[in-house]
Design a protein around this nucleic acid. Sequence first.
DNA 1: AAGCGCCCCGACCGATCGGTCGAAGGGATA
DNA 2: TATCCCTTCGACCGATCGGTCGGGGCGCTT
Lengths: 219, 219
Amino acid sequence: MTEAPGPTSRNKILEVAEARFAQRGYAGVGLREVAEAAGLSKSSLFHHFPSKAALYCSMLDGVLRRLEARLGPALGTEQAPPERLEAGLDELISVLAEQPTTARLLLRTLFEDDDLPEGGLPEADAMNATLARVIGAIHTVIEAGVADGSFRPVSVPHTVQTLVGTCVYHFASGEFGDELLGRPIFSAEAVRARREEVRAFVHFGLARQTDSAPKEKAS
Amino acid sequence: MTEAPGPTSRNKILEVAEARFAQRGYAGVGLREVAEAAGLSKSSLFHHFPSKAALYCSMLDGVLRRLEARLGPALGTEQAPPERLEAGLDELISVLAEQPTTARLLLRTLFEDDDLPEGGLPEADAMNATLARVIGAIHTVIEAGVADGSFRPVSVPHTVQTLVGTCVYHFASGEFGDELLGRPIFSAEAVRARREEVRAFVHFGLARQTDSAPKEKAS
DNA sequence: AAGCGCCCCGACCGATCGGTCGAAGGGATA
DNA sequence: TATCCCTTCGACCGATCGGTCGGGGCGCTT
């Protein structure tokens, strides 16, 4: 209903917009640049999208739906909450490692309050709804774990922020200064390391246990 | 030499620029806005700074020097590398919690490759030199720890990225969606929690030990 | 062939961007 | 009082911004 991934002009625009906005942010990208990179003129772009904000929101909505399609199944198995959470974060890490643009766009979305100018346009509502579903899916799993006692009584939103943010950040920053780090920051080993790190957090930092828990929080 | 913190127009501009650029990024802020918020006209701003990029770099250099002044003493004691690293990260967390703009600007600097257009202007060189000193100070401590055997033979740049990035990210994102999290994301408890998390990483994840190490990496 | 709808385009709009210029105010020195 | 420097300013520049408009090509139906 929302998308048919044919090589249409609209999809080409969305594809280009995703790459450009991920690289330089909402304010840093002009529509002329997007249109010409997509192979048409700026006027034609406005035939497919009513405004810059609508284009950005439509693009981000598509990215989030892609993410949702991967995270949903992983989080929705019939296993116990810790295993479901671990599987979901594993999948999240896979997606971020495969799609660098997703990581960067997600990071921008999570930490930029006013990246795009507000205004009650319908595309923004749809995008926010998708984002809320994705976040809510993780939220629900952690909440279930807290409810059945497998997780400590942490602040669920804060924990979601910690988990998602840590994953997103690492795959969003490709390099860390040329003279300090010559090679790209993530690779197969980096993905594995991050996976183990998150796994350790879930099973040692978040799970209920007696001592040596590295994390404590007020509710 | 570089700064005298009097209430001069120049300092007022830098102060306003820090807040604005931290909020909306380099491309998202216009100089007219900065100048008027600082109480003078755009022309006057150009009397104090030769260009927008120079203003941004001068501002960021000041922020980094402020950070350096706090991190240097903490990292430079005569204790063992793990304790020095922990003290430095403790101080980093304190600075980030006290100065939200520093966290946001640092996050932008670390993950935005092309936030500001390159060009061999001297302010950019000075800023990059300051950044390299700050990062290098942490780098050196970890390297010393690896050399004397108190840390496992990790990739030092990657470890710096992990440590700094994790701290910075959490204090850069003030909220995480209004309906999912009503209160500001960090407070006294959040600062303490992050401190303990980093401390756990240094002593359990980074330190050399036999088992239960949650992190492994290729060199 | 006539009509229609979709898609694309060049030209244009007002606003704002970063940046320049010449002049004026004001305080210190002579 | 005259000179000088630092600072501030309004006016202006070309370029680019997001966005609009009218028209033309093209395929499909009738």
